[in-house]
C-alpha cells in the first residue's frame, strides 16, 4: 500500500538510494537534508513513516526525533533512524527521544524494504 515517508540524510547519495528504493516500492517520499530542513514537512500533513540519519548538520537526528514527538499529530508516527554498527551507544538516546527502530548502514534496498514493511505492516 502506498505510504507517505519522510527521509532525512545529509548525504545525497544515501538519500537517493532510499528515495529510489521506496518510490520503486510505490511509496510517496519526501526528502530533507537535515532536521532543520525537514521541519517544513511537519505542517500537519499525513506521514506514515520517518527515516532519519543521526549525524546531520543544523538539527541532528536525535534532536529532530524529539522535535517530532513534541507535535501532537506525529506523536505516534513511526521513526526509524539510520545508524552504523559502531554507533550502538546512541540507541538508548534514540529510544528515549522517541525512535521506533533503526536500520543499520550499509543496507541493500531489500533490507530497507524488509525493515520498513515490518513497521508499516
Amino acid at each position: 500500500m502506498k505510504k507517505k515517508i519522510l527521509i532525512l540524510d545529509d548525504s545525497e547519495s544515501i538519500r537517493e538510494v532510499v528515495l529510489f528504493t521506496l518510490e520503486k516500492d510505490g511509496h510517496e517520499v519526501l526528502t530533507a537534508v537535515d532536521g532543520k530542513d525537514a521541519m517544513k514537512y511537519l505542517d500537519g500533513r499525513e506521514l506514515d513513516l520517518i527515516i532519519t540519519d543521526l549525524y546531520m548538520p543544523n538539527i541532528n537526528g536525535i534532536e529532530f526525533i524529539k522535535e517530532v514527538r513534541k507535535i501532537e499529530k506525529y506523536k505516534y508516527t513511526p521513526i526509524l533512524y539510520l545508524t552504523t554498527e559502531s554507533q550502538q551507544s546512541k540507541k538508548k538516546e534514540a529510544k528515549e527521544a522517541g525512535a521506533t527502530g533503526w536500520i543499520v548502514k550499509p543496507f541493500m534496498p531489500e533490507k530497507l524494504l524488509a525493515a520498513i514493511s515490518k513497521i508499516l505492516k
Partner: peptide, 11 residues
Amino acid sequence: MHSLKGGSSMF
C-alpha cells in the same frame, strides 16, 4: 568522516 564511512560501506 561518519558520512564518508556510511557512504563508502553502502556503495
